[in-house]
Amino acid sequence: MAMAAAASAAATVGAKPSFSSHATHALLISRLRHGLSFPKHISSSCPTLASRSAPKHLPLRRPPRATAAPAETAPATFHGPCYVLGDNIDTDQIIPAEYLTLVPSKPDEYEKLGSYALVGLPSAAYTTPFVGPGATRTRFPVIIAGANFGCGSSREHAPVALGAAGARAVVAESYARIFFRNSVATGEVYPVESEGVGLWKECTTGDIVTVELGENLLVNHTTGKEYKLKPIGDAGPVIDAGGIFAYARKTGMIASPSN
């Protein structure tokens, strides 16, 4: 089936510089078909994932993050103070539309997007800003939220702003579809789902937490409580690599870009 799809694809794609041959494209199709998935399906579809070898350190397009765990160790662990949000945090609150003139693929504007991350939150309800005044990066590597995180617009600026600010993982009860997909495609943040509900009600902004992707665990050191997370599954290695293109190159699905 993959070969049939590739054969038809080759007609339109074969001439493209980064799809150097039919064979690599066939590989891309078959690998990606099993590779990129969405949260509910991955856990069962790829049981070998937890034992994946450590992702190689890759030249990522995003700047290195101060709060990040070393890229050489796998699976990823994130530690630090958390920022806590409620249900239905939409993309207008994550990055208000007036900042959408910033183009994420331009490095200086990427950084600027980070400085505006979550600036749309009502200040009465959220007295602590996610990014401090005058800062470009956040001191909260982990965001904890309720259901339907990232609903609204398809703006990729949303996961980009969170990632550019230095957030590494969001732990929410569920995600809006496009936000989840954009998070994986860009590799900006790990969109992790909690097993239970109400986690955000038991955590407070500033609590020190650790997200153990390998253990599927969130530990709140301040309260002493632990919470189970759903496995990130096949999305994990894609984000580890720095997004869908980087993953496809790293795994040999597509060739490097030509000049």
Binding site: A9, T12, V13, S18, F19, R33, S154, I178, A185, T186
Partner: peptide, 17 residues
């Protein structure tokens, strides 16, 4: 609706997963 990265892929290949 899709994001920029997916759209960049479509722009080059005409395909999407």
């Amino acid at each position: 609706g899709i994001g920029n990265t997916d759209a960049g892929f479509v722009m080059g290949t005409g395909k999407i997963l």
